[in-house]
Amino acid sequence: MLTKRIIPCLDVKDNRVVKGINFLNLRDAGDPVELGKKYSDEGADELVFLDITATIRSKKTIVELVEKVAANVFIPFTVGGGISKADEIGLLLRSGADKCSINTAAVNNPDLLRESAERFGAQCVVLAIDARRTPGKVGKWHVTVKAGSEPTDIDAIEWAIKAEKLGAGEILLTSMDADGTQTGYDIELTRAVAEAVSIPVIASGGAGTLESLTEVLDKGKADAVLAASIFHYGTYSIKKTKEFLQQHGVPVRPV
């Protein structure tokens, strides 16, 4: 049976892992190379590295850092943040990434998803959606760009469906309302997207208690959960998380 994936996320700024609340008030959480190795060794199912300063285009240092992290990570490794061209995906894959996540650039140029999937395969093209609840409308979310700082009038569900058609192989869905709050994932949003597409959906934003992970994998129909704070600050280990999920009927790869 295919297991549900537990994915720690490294938000990286100035060569350090950081974590904020709703993408603001950043606080240091450690060294990306050390943390990446630790999660890979401890039984995480994948690792995500997001350059939150979005400097992949202009700075060689991020590519060098990706190389260093990848050298010690023997689980699937996704890199994102500021990717705007298919050539940049090629560069990151050659540097040791297995998948790349695209966000703002795909909103500006949806054809980038098609081009990337054709060149590198859909399995390495992850569409990242930062969604926010639309005020005054129940069951509606809109896409935000530039690390959540700019709202658009694009409906998050419709964008997910379109991205799948264009060739995205997976969706990394972050609730901007929940991110960093540790108050639980947006179950309704996750479920709405998971039911609208047939590619895997990674739920992100709001991981707090272990019950919140169980809930989004079960009721939210997510294929994987992404979390940062609860792992970086040692609230739960990967092992403890997986044991809890297994006890609650969620299939996971045993550590």
């Binding site: 049976m1 295919l2 297991t3 549900k4 994936r5 199912d45 859909a122 399995q123 192989g169 997976e170 047939s198 590619i199 895997p200 959906v201 294929d223 994987a224 790869r253």
Partner: peptide
């Protein structure tokens, strides 16, 4: 089932 077959399988 979701496609691709993505993740850890027995």
């Amino acid at each position: 089932l979701t496609i691709p077959h993505m993740g850890w399988n027995y």
